[in-house]
Design a protein around this nucleic acid. Structure first.
Lengths: 208, 208, 208, 208
DNA sequence: AATGAATGAGATTTCATTCAT
DNA sequence: CATGAATGAAATCTCATTCAT
């Protein structure tokens, strides 16, 4: 163990504090000072542990990505029935509300992915792990006869991730869509694509 | 006319220059200097016209939102057949590629909407105008018998906007999804939701 | 004239101020703040003109080298008789006293020449221009029959420069040798090497 | 013995390490960290032993001065014949080359002698011990009839020290004079001043 | 005795903004 | 109207030093 436990704990605490600071102020407005205040240490301590602020941010992002994906993968694994799996994954993909820390973090980093390679890679990892999750559930559901996929599994998975991303943003951004409604829309698409009416009540719809 | 024309022209040019600068460097990294350089004027000139930099950014965002929505509304109006309308709107909602200036701008401002009221309002306007566009097309298509909506028009419209947003980001962010594929996914959903197979070839899909 | 006169004047003033500050505090202890104070401007102004402090220091050194050499070359040119020339050059090569600004500057930069290439080049230029000055005077004095060189002109010139350098340091460093004595030693060597007793009284010397 | 031996040994090691660090990076750029790294200890250990960094530097200088002078005095004492003594002292006064650690150290401290009293005193001690060395050799050589001093012993001694100082710098500073040439110039002067042609071949010299 | 985590003073650097021209 | 020299507030970064272990 090259680095003593105490130092690791402090690093962890700083990353945690940085996460909170970013969620509160926005990534672009978070200063060393904010992180230090949040962690209850001196500003110098932050630069002592992270010579480079960008590196710290990258780690915060990496951790958020991993935590988010792991969480969902675990959630999926907790169910046997593909339909239950799908429902669980759908529900846990959306932020709980405007204060969902993990999700807020992920959105803060999005525009950076256009400008920084390391962020682009992480963003891609986030995307592919989510895609993989959905594709697996759909494929297994189809194989077991539970789902009758009306479009390619790949497309449905991609669409579910996309809807999740977009609605997630709506839930988080103030003045937008409530989580409940976002969830209904997601399940609406899932029902349509898997031809499983138990995911959403099917009717014949007129205008509006 | 309180403000002479020449001054207005200069303001317009600065907004234009700011847009380019933001697209290139990212919103958070754009300095007065960058805008001035891009516009070919002195730094002092920028603050001379825009005492408040935040105001300038807000205007850039507002203009981008309006330009984007107007463009699409015009596009929709250019067609008679609801299906052509829908196809046209879908196609023009996605960025042409990673260099689509207008779309890049819109994404740069997204995380700010969580932190600044004026941005939140603009973001909401952007959302609602797009939503309205789709809902209209769908409703009229349904009324004319062209579409057989399998879910509420409101939901389908919201899902189309959401898919567009998410895929738009993928097209723009480097290392992500090519526009072509994003478009196919979008049409796939549209075909499913409107029960109009002409939008995408319908088959029975197995795993993968 | 790409750069307006006023800006050039300010740059010149800052270089001048930097010279004073360096002489007072020593090169290694001179901060941006000291230069700004000396010039009567804000600290930001110094970095506005000289983004890189090292660059400023290099210019100060370069200017000092050039000024010092030009001064001496002009002095030499003011005389006809080689002996008068030699005497003039010798006298102007030594600092007037511990406050001789130009000389203090040159000594401050000496140790840096071991560590920075640009300083090494300037130091070398300083050396070669002085060497050339002496060699010329000696050669012409010999040719005219005024001097009877007892050692190669090259060696005598090098030795005169070396003595000058070392004694110059003594004159400048506190608690060292008075200028008067340093001058006598220099002339003593010159008399010996040129066999011109008029440069220093020649006797037969016993111990002490 | 108030201070135990082990502690003394550690102090000694740190001074040694500091010397190396200063030679490598230059006095003004040497940080506590560099010394600690060089000595293979923690940074805290350096300040534990030397509460005051300036004090440490002073001791490094003092030690260098003493070591340099003692070395030369021992060298002089190793010979009987005044001419051999003079030759030995001359040879050992010049740095062996650009990496001569002791000499580099002495030069690093030179400009500080203008700004710090303690350094000025050490520099003066260095000067006077060298001066004394030469004066003794010259006086005894003259008394024994070996030398026929053509200038006062005091002046010759001072000039030899001065030449040594200046040429020493040239040898050390990159891009300057090779040691061999410096030595020839020094012997040239010694031969002239002591009228001892065995120190350097005497001829009649024309221009160049 | 020795460490090295943590600090905070002090320096530089960046940059929006002011203002005389 | 437009400039750009000059500013100074605000941020980061460096590093000697402290102190609990």
């Amino acid at each position: 163990m090259a680095r003593p436990k105490r130092q690791d704990a402090r690093r962890e605490a700083l990353l945690q504090a940085a996460g909170v600071a970013i969620q509160r102020r926005g990534l672009h407005a978070t200063r060393v000072r904010d992180i230090a205040d949040q962690a209850g240490v001196a500003a110098g301590t932050v630069t002592y542990y992270f010579r480079d602020l960008d590196e710290l941010f990258r780690l915060v992002f990496a951790q958020a990505v991993d935590r988010f994906c792991t969480q969902r993968e675990r959630e999926a694994a907790a169910h046997e029935d593909p339909r239950d799996q799908l429902a669980a994954v759908l529900r846990h993909g959306l932020p709980t509300g405007p204060d969902d820390q993990l999700c807020c973090l992920l959105y803060e980093f999005s525009p950076h992915a256009r400008h920084r390679d390391s962020d682009a890679q992480l963003r891609r990892e986030l995307y592919e792990r989510q895609l993989h999750l959905y594709r697996d559930v759909l494929t297994r559901g189809h194989a077991s006869g539970r789902f009758d996929l009306r479009r390619p599994a790949e497309e449905i998975a991609a669409n579910l991730v996309a809807l999740e991303d977009a609605y997630g943003y709506h839930v988080i951004a103030r003045t937008f869509m409530p989580r409940q409604q976002a969830e209904e829309h997601l399940f609406g698409y899932a029902a349509l694509a898997t031809a499983d009416p138990s995911l959403a009540p099917e009717n014949h719809y007129g205008p509006g």
